[in-house]
Design a protein around this nucleic acid. Structure first.
Length: 465
RNA sequence: GCUCCCUUCGUCUAGAGGCCUAGGACAUGGCCCUCUCAAGGCCAGUACACGGGUUCGAAUCCCGUAGGGAGCGCCA
């Protein structure tokens, strides 16, 4: 049997990391078993669904590389099909029209709550024969009255629900449009979904869906309900710390494979391994190994994971991302060698590609902005003499490479009888404007002789002012 | 209120009765390396929610309690 999973987000809010994680689990499970992965947009709530949210889902999935084999399907384009199944259920007496008014229903609920009962529809229209004039009825599914439904959940194990706890839910509104639970059931059945992997907020819906699935003659799929992601404070994820569009992470300079790696480790592990390539995940992931408990989102660890991936990624790949990030800062460049050189020098001192771009501005443009504090510390006093010696030394340097620069610096330090730091720091401030950069020999090599000499000159001017 | 779910370091997790005086990772502190900052290496502290059982033996099994979460919509 071919494994078929799906990711079925509703575009009523922007796709965030919680959704991404369930998408990832579904995708991984399908890939792991050489199955199919379907993308389905559950947009039946026309009031709250937005085109922007749909776009974020599409763009986000693409950025992350979570490719689908089918779809995207849109529920709003399948209304004819839902109407067809609805008609069948009605004809077979498995669903019925309910003429209760919202007021009537509301009264019923408050009464039940007052009696400390679980609010539920009492089925008063179940056996009604005659329509009520002037009332557009809703359609309710006739849920079994007795017995139990067992959800064989892949992460929770068997979960038992009593049918007596369930009521006859509305599957079509009075305007004829189908509701969520019904659409899901028809879709999962039509699309031959074998494994439903979703948030555990749906666990309570599952017995109803199983009953409906059986009513339309489909063997229910396997289910796996995964816990949600909490904010760093352990509370529900909010806009403050992560309930933002996934694309936000792209803007912030995170690598898609790093985000995925971080997310998969929330509730899943493989021994002591922390860093995984996507291929490894496809090999190792199993939905049955996922934890039951919710986990908190930890931005620091995400950063660490991101840097680990940066240190492992290829130079050309990172160079392309760095170029995009630089563009956001208004720096345009096509110099591939320079970009790769920067990546090589910066990737172990930046947590994100955005941070790398921000701390690499001195590789571009003619001048650098000199940081006052760093300049005061390194460009004054004995630094001046160092800078002057450097100026003449560099002017005469023919081997313009990191090794060549390094040789010059060590010689100078030896001549002056000081440590390398006494030479390197003034030079660093002169070249980068700051006291922090990749190794100064490599940095100087990347910046180039012409600009190095110009910046040395300018630093000397700063000292003399 | 009712139903369902969850509970190991601050955080992510390992752990499927003896290997656990509970392992790894992030974060934190210290040391080392070092031209800066990092990266890397080493070291340190901090956890089995609580209470009862079962057992020669429990983080692991059972039962309660507490705490947290979800659902109970003509929302998805």
């Amino acid at each position: 049997m071919t494994i078929v999973t799906r990711f079925a987000p509703s575009p009523t809010g922007l796709l965030h990391i919680g959704g991404v994680r369930t998408a990832l689990f579904s995708w991984l499970y399908a890939r792991r078993h050489a199955g199919r992965f379907i993308l389905r947009v559950e947009d039946t709530d026309r009031e709250r669904s937005t085109d922007e949210a749909v776009q974020v889902i599409l763009d986000g999935m693409q950025w992350l590389g979570l490719s689908h084999d089918e779809g995207p399907y849109y529920q709003t384009r399948r209304f004819d099909r839902y109407a067809e199944v609805l008609g069948q259920l009605l004809a077979q007496g498995k669903a019925y029209h309910c003429y209760c008014s919202k007021e009537e229903l509301e009264a019923m609920r408050t009464l039940q709550l007052a009696r400390k009962e679980k609010p539920r529809y009492d089925g008063r229209c179940r056996e009604r024969r005659a329509p009520v004039p002037g009332v557009q009825p809703v359609v309710r599914f006739k849920n079994p009255l007795a017995g139990e439904v067992v959800v064989e959940d892949l992460v929770h194990g068997p979960v038992v629900f009593q049918n007596a706890e369930l009521d006859d839910l509305i599957i079509a509104r009075s305007d004829g449009t189908p509701t969520y639970n019904f659409c899901v059931v028809v879709d999962d059945s039509d699309m031959n979904i074998t494994h439903v992997i979703r948030g555990d907020d749906h666990l309570n819906n599952t017995p109803r869906q199983i009953n409906m699935l059986r009513a339309i003659g489909f063997t229910p799929p396997a289910y796996a309900h995964v816990a949600m992601i909490l904010g760093p404070d352990g509370a529900k994820l909010s806009k403050r710390h992560g309930a933002v569009s996934v694309l936000h992470y792209r803007e912030q300079g995170y690598l898609p494979e790093a985000l995925l790696n971080y997310l998969v480790r929330l509730g899943w592990s493989h021994g002591d391994q922390e860093i995984f390539s996507l291929d490894e995940l496809v090999q190792l992931f199993d939905i049955g190994d996922v934890n039951k408990a919710a986990s908190a989102f930890n931005p620091e660890k995400l950063q660490w994971v991101n840097q680990q991936h940066m240190m492992r990624a290829s130079l050309p790949y990172l160079a392309a991302i760095l170029r995009e990030q630089l563009q956001r800062l208004g720096v345009q460049t096509q110099d591939q060698a320079l970009l790769e050189g920067i990546v090589a020098g910066q990737r172990e001192r930046a947590k994100t590609m955005k941070e790398m771009a921000e701390s690499s501005r001195y590789f571009f443009g003619a001048d650098v902005e000199i940081d006052e504090k760093a300049a005061r510390k390194h460009l004054g006093g004995e630094g001046v003499a160092v800078l002057e010696r450097l100026r003449s030394g560099f002017a005469a340097l023919t081997d313009w490479s990191a090794a060549g620069v390094h040789a010059l610096l060590s010689d100078l330090a030896a001549q002056l009888g000081v440590g390398l730091g006494k030479v390197a720091q003034p030079l660093r401030v002169a070249l980068t404007g700051t006291a922090v950069s990749p190794p100064i020999d490599a940095t100087a090599a990347l910046i180039g002789k012409e600009r190095v000499l110009a910046r040395l000159e300018r630093a000397l001017q700063w000292s003399a002012r």
